[in-house]
Design a protein around this nucleic acid. Structure first.
Length: 438
RNA sequence: GUGGUCGUAGCUCAGCUCGGUUAGAGCGCCAGGUUGUGGCCCUGGAGGCCGGGGGUUCAAAUCCCCUCGAUCACCCCA
């Protein structure tokens, strides 16, 4: 950095400012999600960004998220607290604290923080949207949750999304399976990559996730979860699959799908965006976490949910060229050649009537004001010159047609684009004029 | 935490290999052409300590070292 007197600040590593139109697109995406899950009976929950560190420890002592990536620090009273690295643990804590009626169906949107090396689709501050259902053990809940996410991707226009599902079995199944995998991998330890050997010591199941080529052969012959499943777990999973079939949601069972966080039991799932050439192509994931609530001091309660990565979804939308940012719309833009009082009064009058209006501060030449009017996306320029002022009239000029979603552009062939119709009307009729042409 | 690539105008980049007058282009922005009319066109203008620091040299955007940042991959995960 330069000399301290004139130090310029910029965003921290892995964090970024989102400016328009990216911010508009993100807003639209989040609003769409809220609408979708609201229709399914989910209510919003807004947990705090900071929690006692212990809340997040339950995510898994063997995970990087907990051991290496948390923004944790000491509070002023000496207690250990942390910025949330994900939402589920905080939501589960809220459940334990408030004891809401069952089933508790909630959704959330918000930022999470993980201290990792940033790369495409991975930031230290990232947005997620998600849902959680606490209470029912019914496999139909798993289905509802998965289908919700699937419909959301459909609504955005995404087509190259793959749904992967798996089951890790119940607690005992998972432990037995983990041990089975560990024994197997130990027996072929020398064939594994160095990284995989390290992972093996901490969390054998995670080795199955390795992307390194040298590990593939060994992983391919590893034991399958199906052999370790209890009857109940197998039946649960079977009903999840048949539910997805019934609702025509395509999926593939991937028995190597081991999700990162320790609290998952039974159903797990992940959404991969194939249009993303980046390594970070998981745009969402989730599963059952029966036992998490108990770990946090609550009654034994089943839970299932998912989290979707807003940033990655937007990246996937870019790759598939869908979900363009919304077009700016304005009902009127004021062009005032007489000093600005009319622009000031009319913008507020129009807004007060429930329509949208803007104007240019500092006025400028008519050309400058008209240019600004065009760029604003306004349908009409409302022009007030000295003639109009004296006659108590306004000139209303159409800048684009009602059905013209694009920015006006004379070069686009003229269909619905170029317009220049204008007329003078009494000033008191302006609101009615704009309203009748909305 | 490890490795590769890259930092020049608001944005996208040229110039760097073979150091040498006021560092360029396109887009965007501002103004004028059109003294009351946007989108197209033409003209002009503003805007850069060439990421920062140090070194080599008569001379560094250009060569060397360090540093910071970005980016991609590993790891991990959304």
């Amino acid at each position: 950095m330069a000399d301290p007197k004139s130090q310029k600040f910029q965003t921290l590593t892995g964090m970024r400012d989102m400016l328009w139109p990216d911010s508009a697109r993100r807003r639209l995406l989040v609003d769409g999600f809220v609408g979708l899950v609201g229709n399914a009976g989910y209510k919003e929950v807004v947990p705090p960004l900071l929690e006692n560190l212990g809340v997040f420890r339950r995510i898994g002592e063997a995970t990087d998220v907990v051991t290496k990536e948390m923004y944790d620090f000491e509070d002023k009273d000496g207690s250990r607290i942390a910025l949330r690295p994900e939402m589920t643990a905080g939501v589960a804590r809220a459940f334990v604290q408030h004891k809401p009626a069952l089933p508790w169906k909630v959704f959330y949107t918000g930022s999470n923080f993980r201290h990792e090396r940033p790369q495409k689709g991975r930031y230290r501050a990232f947005d997620q949207v998600g849902v959680e259902v606490l209470g029912p053990d019914d496999p139909d809940v798993d289905v509802e949750v998965i289908v919700l996410a699937w419909r959301f991707f459909e609504a955005l226009g995404l087509e190259q999304v793959r749904l992967l599902v798996n089951t890790l079995g119940e607690h005992a199944d998972r432990s037995a399976y983990s041990e089975g995998v560990r024994l197997y991998l130990e027996s072929r330890r020398s064939e594994l990559s160095g990284q995989a050997q390290e992972t093996l010591q901490r969390n054998p199941l995670r080795v199955l996730d390795s992307k390194r080529r040298e590990d593939k052969a060994v992983i391919g012959e590893a034991p399958r979860i199906s052999k370790y499943l209890s009857e109940a777990a197998a039946e649960h999973f079977g009903r999840v699959c048949s539910g997805l079939d019934a609702l025509d949601v395509p999926y593939t069972v991937d028995d190597r799908l081991v999700r990162g966080l320790d609290y998952y039991r039974r159903t797990t799932f992940e959404f991969a965006a194939d249009a993303l050439d980046a390594a970070q192509n998981a745009i969402g994931g989730g599963g059952r976490y029966d036992g998490l609530v108990e770990d946090l001091g609550g009654p034994a309660t089943d839970g299932v949910g998912f989290a979707l990565g807003v940033d990655r979804i937007l990246l996937a939308c870019d790759a598939e060229e869908v979900f363009a940012p919304p077009v700016t719309r304005l009902d009127a833009y004021l062009v005032d050649l007489t000093g600005g009082e009319s622009a000031r009064d009319l913008t507020h009058e129009i807004r007060g009537a429930g329509m949208s209006a803007d104007r240019r501060f500092g006025a400028g030449s008519m050309k400058a004001q008209m240019k600004a009017a065009d760029r604003s996306g306004a349908r009409f320029a409302v022009i007030i010159g000295s003639d109009e002022l004296v006659a108590d009239e306004v000139t209303v000029r159409m800048l684009r047609r009602p059905d013209d979603g694009s920015h006006s552009d004379a070069a686009n062939g003229g269909q619905g684009g170029p317009t220049d119709a204008q007329q003078r009307i009494p000033r008191r009729e302006l609101i009615e004029f704009l309203r009748s042409r909305k």
